[in-house]
Design a protein around this nucleic acid. Structure first.
Length: 302
DNA sequence: ATCCAGGAACTGT
DNA sequence: ACAGTTCATGGA
């Protein structure tokens, strides 16, 4: 049971703490994002379940998340999958109280959990999307990374138009696996990133690389190892996928420039912190490095 | 023009 | 294991 199914909608009891509006702020961080749309306090997203496109409209009241289906109500089996998806997307299954207890004693995180109270990790449940997004974002500025992602989606992803708004789905691994390097290069992906993404798409298409097999690989270190043996996936990209797709709370992209800039700002430093300095700060975050990182990322969107 | 951006592979020691 | 080099391309 992932939620209460009212046939034409689903409501999911939200855990404490949870703030839908904080999640919407993170989701609205780029005006180039086309994988969801925010209109007033409603969040729209296109999903594909059992082979069919389904548009969802998500909203919240103090105790529930409500999922509606403006373009057609799917069958009960699909509704149940959608409830599970939304739960994963907002990381609703996690008990945040240990994180908040730790953070309330931490110099850096203390203010962040007050400011962004109820923010949850916004996850990327699709493994191919998480890895492709990681590779896309390697060593380029975020603005350009969003541009590349948008081009890839609008070139190769499926879409649905409802009341004049077009909603996009991230391209499937199957679709991308069938492309040539040139097809991504022309969108201004570098040759190497195009190679990496195509190879990973093929591995996912062929069932060699799956979320389940990664999760069964064992400890977080073993999962990281099985990711970093893949060409194009280093420590940073694997940590990102472990954070936002596999939802491993200890995942920690310690070399992430976004994290560095957030810490620089929080600590009013005139330079980015050194890795050794971050290791010192993060020693207090043990068990919750992923959430600490996520809240720090959030602090950059002020 | 210059530096840098939510890195990773490759090469040499 | 560790350090330096190369790749790659737009944003500010």
């Amino acid at each position: 049971m992932n939620g209460i199914d009212h046939e034409s909608s689903i409501s999911i009891k939200t855990p404490e703490p949870f703030s839908f509006s904080e999640c919407l702020i993170f989701l609205g961080r780029s005006d180039q994002e086309v994988l969801h749309q925010i209109h007033d306090d409603y969040l729209f997203k296109l999903l594909k379940m059992d082979g069919s496109l389904i548009l969802i409209k998500v909203s919240a009241d103090p105790n529930f998340i409500l999922i509606e289906f403006p373009d057609g109500v799917p069958n009960p089996a699909v509704r149940s999958k959608i409830a599970a998806y939304v739960k994963d997307w907002f990381d609703l299954g996690r008990d945040l109280s240990p994180f908040y207890a730790m953070a309330s004693q931490d110099k850096i995180l203390k203010q962040l959990i007050q400011k962004y109270y109820g923010l949850r990790m916004i996850c990327i449940p699709d493994l191919f999307e998480a890895l492709a997004w990681g590779i896309t974002g390697q060593q380029i500025n975020l603005t350009f990374a969003y541009t590349l992602k948008k081009r890839m989606i609008q070139q190769f992803g499926e879409h649905l138009t409802y009341k004049g708004n077009t909603f996009w789905l991230f391209p499937s691994a199957e679709k991308i696996a069938g492309l040539h390097i040139e097809d991504l290069k022309i969108l201004q992906f570098s040759s190497r990133k195009a190679e990496y993404i195509l190879e990973i798409a093929k591995a996912i298409r062929d069932g060699i690389l799956t979320k389940e097999s990664l999760l069964q690989a064992g400890s977080p270190d073993q999962i990281q190892e099985s990711l970093t043996v893949i060409r194009g996936i280093g420590k940073w990209t694997s940590s990102l996928a472990m954070m936002r797709c596999l939802r491993i709370p200890t995942a920690f992209p310690i070399a992430d420039v976004g994290l560095h800039l957030a810490l620089k700002k929080q600590l009013s430093m005139d330079r980015k912190p050194f890795i050794e300095e971050i290791e010192g700060m993060a020693s207090y975050w043990e068990g919750w490095q992923a959430y600490a990182t996520f809240y720090l990322w959030r602090s950059r969107y002020e």
